[in-house]
Design a protein around this nucleic acid. Structure first.
Lengths: 221, 221
DNA sequence: TCATGTGAAAGAATTCACAGCA
DNA sequence: TGCTGTGAATTCTTTCACATGA
């Protein structure tokens, strides 16, 4: 509807958190309202921050009352793209891949890992969390017309770029990259990196001497 | 030595990336130099950005030449706290926990998961990646004088806060939290959250309509 | 009185642009 | 010429503060 204006990335992160919080509240009391202060306190943000963020969603609050939990939740769902189903292809059935496959939360949230690829002959053909592992060489054939929306890369660093290109070749619009390697892709493709080593390193730095900056504390990496 | 001035969090993230890149370069040619442009190009940052970041490390560059790979690498190692060993306790031997236990990269980087706890009787006593799983009720006894530096929480959301408090009770200075729940802890404890659902959601949002903002593309979540 | 929505102010982070050194 | 280090300018984000509505 609105949402022409582009939403800043820090705000999008927080919108996801609001969405989750509202979902939990809604399950308990679907008629509830929450003020920006309540929502902020629950997540560690200021009330002003919450209001500014929610302004991107629309004018949904009622002065003196707060926000309708249900209304806000529904609107966030739409804006965050959670009102549709997402199909993802996973490449790499190693430890991280397996963890993702068994992550129940994804299914609940309409993220479906529909195909799994690997290049290890010992793994190909086996079944992991009810999905059978396909040969990586079949990637193009399997995904050509599958309309897969997202790719998840969980392969060694040196293979990541090539896999990314193949995934983009079959039309995925976004990539979740677990390999510790920057992917060079066209700007029309969204890439998000998850890098455990990097995250641990950030933590170590903070503990080491950066006598932890409180403002950053809850920071979602 | 220096490093009294607090380094901004975005800079710390990039310093880790520089450190990794320099390590790879160093392995090939330990006498190499790199300019801020070369380093930036490799990682997708501007040369000015690189120089600003490296200014926090000290005045290590040589005009007309660049930075000595070895010198810069060594200095970053110290600043990032990588010149020492880190011991971590893992709580939760589920899928994520197992993936972390088998993640080879950690050992190489001097991060050692020395204890593993779970509350599942079927898992307790078993061996995962050469570490035997301890009963969560033994946490305090096991860690009391162990001098463990970091805690890794990979338990269901509803247990996360309690585990965090127990870990802090035995003296860990930092927590890596995989549970989709904000931890309320004293500000002297560093917390970093890794939240797959949140990350996938960010990606979905970008793909959905936020016709991917190029500036954010390589963003490490 | 309580709480939203939003301009204005402040604060952070990035980019620019250039003096100065090798 | 090539490249660093850094103030100045710019852009992005958060916080403040208050007019307005219920």
């Amino acid at each position: 509807m609105d949402l022409k204006a582009k939403i800043p990335s820090p705000t999008v992160k927080r919108l996801s958190l609001y969405f989750r919080e509202l979902g939990e509240r809604r399950a308990v009391d679907s008629d509830a309202t929450m003020s920006s202060r309540q929502l902020g306190d629950a997540l560690g943000f200021s009330d002003a921050q919450v209001r500014k963020d929610l302004a991107f969603v629309g004018q949904l609050g009622h002065p003196g009352v707060g926000y309708s939990v249900t209304l806000l939740h529904d609107n966030l769902r739409r804006i965050l793209g959670r009102d549709r189903s997402w199909e993802a292809a996973l490449v790499g059935a190693g430890n991280i891949g397996r963890a993702l496959l068994s992550y129940r939360r994804f299914e609940v949230q309409n993220f479906h890992i529909t195909r799994v690829f690997d290049n290890n002959p010992a793994t190909i053909g086996s079944t992991i969390s009810e999905r059978s592992v396909l040969d990586i060489s079949e990637l193009e054939r399997e995904l050509a017309d599958a309309g897969t929306h997202l790719g998840i890369i969980a392969v060694p660093a040196q293979d990541a770029q090539a896999i990314a290109e193949r995934l983009i070749g079959v039309g995925v619009g976004g990539i979740l990259n677990f390999a510790p390697r920057r992917l060079e892709v066209d700007e029309s493709v969204a890439v998000l990196n998850v890098d455990f080593s990097l995250t641990l390193e950030q933590l170590a730095f903070q503990v080491n001497l950066g006598r932890n900056d409180p403002a950053r504390e809850g920071e979602s990496s």
